[in-house]
């Protein structure tokens, strides 16, 4: 009987990976608004409109995720048969986008839900499973769509209500990654799995503020577990805190003794131009996926960035809990990547 001789768990909630598990390829499919943003040149495909000739917004979102998956497979020169596991999630009830996409791919499927932190959650799980020898190639992806999310979480898309200035804009798009060994790409070096943190925020339009606490908690524990400082990384990225949440995150960490201002950016803030009227920034699973896989992945492949800490954040509420006056618990997962 084989026994594992190396202890992977380090600290309270982190894992160090021994093997070379890389992001072998990545693909991004972005919505029209994202395609007009500052990172438009980084996306593999930009959709001309929100519905791309599908019958519903939900189908359009699924189409985007499927396309991202096939593009990622193509770039890695693999077919669905070569993939051992497909790990994916999205924002919709019962994680239908990922499930319907899995139907098409016909790969053994593990559906996950981490709200907007799904991208990091998928990367974490995929990397750990490959490290443990349970799979050789894993495809992971996530998607979100502004209209399908609004329709489910808030109001019908044509409803005329005045969005407050602090409300973020759910990004439309999908990102997919093939994980495996023996290739070129950023390596998953360590993972810090987040705990659920609830700071008592009840407003579903103030998600950046709600999630900042979880982000700070995970980043803090990552530094403590691995005995590192913010300066270890070229850049620290959060998924979708937006301008408001980003500042709050910086403040919380500063109070705990870690100053991240010098090398910290938020994917939600980077996705849109200020004139695109997205409030303090993007939110949604696609926020972290599009910005990291589109922009930062390229920078890492070009060796402009060598060590990146990606911290995707999610708000784990439902329309029901909000109406029932519950607060919004949040989570953040950190994945450290090196090349």
């Amino acid at each position: 009987m084989q026994t594992l001789t190396v202890e992977r768990k380090i600290g309270k909630q982190s894992v160090l990976l021994e093997k070379d598990i890389m992001l072998l390829s990545s693909a991004t499919v972005a919505g029209p608004k994202e395609g007009l943003g500052p990172l438009s040149a980084d996306f593999d495909r930009i959709c001309s409109d929100n519905i791309i000739k599908e019958k519903s917004f939900e189908r359009a979102e699924c189409h985007m995720l499927e396309e991202a998956c096939y593009l990622a497979l193509g770039k890695a020169k693999l077919t669905p048969e070569d993939i051992d596991l497909f790990i994916a999630g999205d924002l919709l009830n019962q994680v239908v986008t990922a499930s319907f996409c899995a139907r098409k791919l016909a790969i053994p499927f593990l559906g996950i839900y981490g709200a907007c932190s799904t991208f990091a959650e998928g990367l974490s799980l995929g990397a750990m499973l490959i490290e443990g020898g349970f799979a050789k190639h894993i495809l992971t992806g996530t998607s979100s769509h502004n209209c399908s999310a609004e329709r489910q979480y808030r109001y019908p898309t044509e409803y005329g209500f005045q969005r407050p200035g602090y409300a973020q804009w759910t990004a439309t798009g999908a990102g997919a990654v093939v994980l495996g060994s023996g290739g070129e790409g950023p390596r998953v070096e360590s993972i810090t799995t987040g705990k659920v943190v609830d700071t008592g925020i009840k407003d579903p339009l103030a998600l950046g503020t709600a999630m900042a606490g979880a982000a700070a908690d995970t980043i803090y524990n990552h530094f403590r577990d691995l005995d590192r400082n913010p300066s270890y990384y070229n850049i620290i990225l959060t998924g979708d805190l937006g301008g408001v949440g980003k500042k709050l995150n910086e403040d919380i960490l500063a109070a705990k003794g870690y100053d991240i201002q010098a090398n910290y950016a938020d994917c939600g803030v980077l996705l849109y131009y200020p004139h695109q009227k997205a409030g303090p920034g993007a939110s949604g699973c696609a926020s972290s996926a599009l910005v990291f896989l589109g922009h930062f992945y390229r920078k890492m492949m070009a060796k402009e960035l060598r060590k990146v800490l990606l911290v995707a954040t999610g708000a784990l509420h439902s329309p029901t809990t909000v109406l029932q006056q519950e607060s919004i618990p949040c989570i953040a997962h950190a994945v450290s990547l090196e090349i």
Binding site: R151, Y155, P156, T157, E158, Y159, G160
Partner: peptide, 11 residues
Amino acid sequence: ANSVTSMAMEF
């Protein structure tokens, strides 16, 4: 009118 119409259209 908008709330009625937008719900009707959306669903």
